[in-house]
Design a protein around this nucleic acid. Structure first.
Lengths: 224, 224
DNA sequence: GATAGTTTCATACAAAAGTTTGAAATGCAA
DNA sequence: TTGCATTTCAAACTTTTGTATGAAACTATC
């Protein structure tokens, strides 16, 4: 087994386990057992458990951010430098939702791992997560540009709520399924993304979002 | 020190610590040190670490649910048995947000502990959290009654998104503060509740664009 | 104030954790 | 092949974990 294969096997196994249990609950022995490698391999290749976690997080975060940016840039290009709100939100919500609810086991684990990591309290992760704010700043700026008439504080709240819906949908999909008696279809990725985007978009633009073609415009609503 | 004082001291200390770190990261020795009691006291009074956690969760969950129900019933009484949507949402979001962002340290810890527990993967908590769905069912029913013309699936999604916003606001308020450069005022409890309620309410009442209904469901490939 | 029942305390214990070690195995160039 | 560097392996080490124990301290009733 080449050195790269071992590292990859460890990263993949760790990701899979961290997707379902928290950092403290997954032992190195669990990871190496799942990866089929020796216990000492982790410390040999990564140095420590913390460094393994850090490398794993950086790897997955950069993959997710790359996909988000690609969509964001495409949206900006399509709008001559200024993307519209829905496109921005779609670039934010699309990748994690698709990753998580698609058939691809590997990417599903990645997205679940990321959302779990975002609530992790262990120092090595916290530090990286905080640095990860910078990638959200890009989205905040895009939204601010797309909504010049809107107060900045409202835009930030809108972004915040969008992230909330994305995360909850990934981590608590089971509860929703149970609560709704299987009424909510969590396999219909496009529908989920659309729900998040249109609700968030509505909050940001302050009026009903012109999401799709159907639906004659009803009376514009006033805030209560 | 009476027996009750010791139990309370342990519960309070545990709650405080669990509010900031996860279950696996807080040791019994941390708890007893913070509580100023002997190590053996935990096993003497609660039986085990798991049972301490269970009792703590039940205690706090019942306090939170009680407050939510009180507000819900008041809203229903005010509407002659049928509360309006905003009042229902306010009963759901008000208590945890007020608890968490108010000046009361004790209740703040309680709310933070509850939201942390909701993502906990350790079996004793998972089991209780799942049983806690029943208390959400009450809110789902109230919303369904308040929105008879709305499709059930949309109501469940609205409830889901409301819970998402509540949780994110409690757990990730720091990120929002930083991201917005202190623009978002997280001390203004009423404003926050109003933002959540009005966004969720618009999503539920359908003034926001609903998800497209022309979906031709693609082959729902389950993951596994 | 003696006694029975609680509660506290210091301490011990086994299990599990992350890490280290040194030898064996492997890969690769000369 | 030989020689050297890299990688793997089984085993041991140290620390920390949750739990158990038995004596001491306390409380309340008689």
């Amino acid at each position: 087994m080449s050195t790269d294969e071992t590292k990859t096997a460890i990263l993949t196994a760790a990701e899979q386990l961290y997707a379902e249990r928290s950092f403290g609950e997954v032992s190195l022995r669990d990871i190496v057992a799942a990866a089929g490698v020796n216990l000492a391999a982790v410390n040999y290749h990564f140095g420590s458990k913390d460094e393994l976690l850090a490398e794993l997080f950086l790897s997955r975060a950069s993959a997710l951010n790359r996909e988000r940016f690609t969509e964001l840039k495409a949206a900006e290009a399509a709008g001559d430098g200024r993307a519209d709100v829905e496109a921005i939100l779609r670039a934010l919500a699309g990748p994690p939702i698709r990753w998580c609810l698609g058939a691809d086991r590997q990417r599903s684990a990645a997205a679940r791992f990321m959302t779990r990591a975002s609530v992790e309290t262990v120092p090595p992760i916290r530090k990286i997560v905080e640095r990860d704010i910078t990638h959200l700043r890009r989205f905040a700026e895009a939204l601010l540009r797309a909504l010049p008439e809107r107060r900045d504080v409202d835009v930030y709240w809108g972004l915040h709520f969008t992230l909330a819906m994305i995360r909850q949908t990934i981590t608590d999909s089971d509860r929703l399924r149970k609560l709704s008696g299987d009424l909510c279809d969590l396999d219909d990725v496009d529908d989920i993304i659309q729900r998040i985007v249109s609700l968030a978009s509505h909050g940001l633009t302050g009026k009903a979002a012109p999401a799709r073609k159907d639906k004659a415009k009803t009376a514009a609503s006033a805030k209560g």
